[in-house]
Amino acid sequence: MSDTLKIASWNINSVRARIDIVTRFLEEERPDILCLQETKVVNDIFPGDPFRRMGYVHQVLNGQRMHHGVAILSKVPLDENLNHDWQDNGEARHVGVRLPNGVRLENVYVPAGGDIPDRVLNPKFGQKLDFIERMTRWSETLAEPTLMVGDFNIAPLECDVWSHKQLLDVVSHTPVEVEALTRLQQSHGWIDLGRHFHPAPARLYTWWSYRSKDWTANDRGRRLDHMWASPTVAAAATGHRVLEPCRSWLKPSDHVPLVTEFSF
């Protein structure tokens, strides 16, 4: 394994439907490791061959038909495949591995939480909060250098959304979700690499709704995707980018990729 490592994370919103833009991304960016969320495919029919042809021969999958699903595709060896059921219902929302340098890599897809920010009126919202609480309990016990990436489905800071005032009651930016995510971050001393390299209030959106015919016209973005690192792993990070132009590619995901480079 080289001294440098480039790791990407992307909610692809169906890997089979968007295999062309995934391979384009890999050709242009050439990360060593790609973490995907919302793959929407069972393991048996995951399109592994295009990735193998590009050198991503190490593939760790946790798939589910039509919904959810996560995958780690790598040019470097991966060990100790581990899946956590933080949703507590069998949904495929996490896959974790160990890298050759001993760092754990956790790829997670937090539930969106429905439309109503009330756990009584909307059980999905309660499931989302419980998911984050289970992650927090796990995080408190971590004793290893770890990088956690994925679609957290929460934009925590006021500058992480296009309008803090208008989104206070909208799921993904409500105070109760932000408080839950803050507790998770504090439970292990996680470093938010996005804001480490691009301090607030710098623009750093990662998601734009499909509902807008031209996402660039009103630019109503949110920062839902994140890369968090243990302090020792964060110290090895040399750069972090959000690839906003990918949102304009043919048949795009509503999310864009994140890329962080490390020098261990």
Rank of each mutant, 00 (worst) to 15 (best):
73 L>V: 14
146 T>Q: 01
38 E>C: 09
31 P>N: 11
264 F>Q: 00
104 R>L: 11
85 D>A: 10
152 F>C: 01
88 D>M: 11
44 D>P: 00
151 D>V: 01
138 W>I: 00
252 P>A: 00
14 S>Q: 12
42 V>L: 11
108 V>R: 01
185 Q>M: 12
127 Q>S: 05
251 K>A: 04
34 L>V: 15
246 C>R: 11
27 E>K: 14
157 L>R: 14
14 S>K: 10
61 L>Y: 10
130 D>S: 07
28 E>Y: 07
187 S>M: 06
175 P>G: 06
21 I>Q: 15
253 S>M: 03
61 L>V: 08
65 R>L: 08
44 D>K: 15
161 V>D: 01
186 Q>L: 14
1 M>Q: 07
33 I>C: 05
64 Q>V: 08
1 M>A: 14
58 H>L: 07
98 R>Y: 08
236 A>V: 00
183 R>W: 03
90 G>Y: 13
110 V>L: 05
161 V>A: 03
111 P>K: 07
66 M>S: 15
160 D>A: 01
37 Q>W: 06
136 T>A: 04
61 L>F: 14
35 C>W: 04
167 L>Q: 08
105 L>N: 05
140 E>S: 07
157 L>M: 08
220 R>K: 15
102 G>F: 13
162 W>P: 01
111 P>W: 04
97 V>D: 05
121 L>G: 04
5 L>T: 04
91 E>P: 03
160 D>G: 02
144 E>M: 06
10 W>S: 03
55 G>S: 14
126 G>C: 10
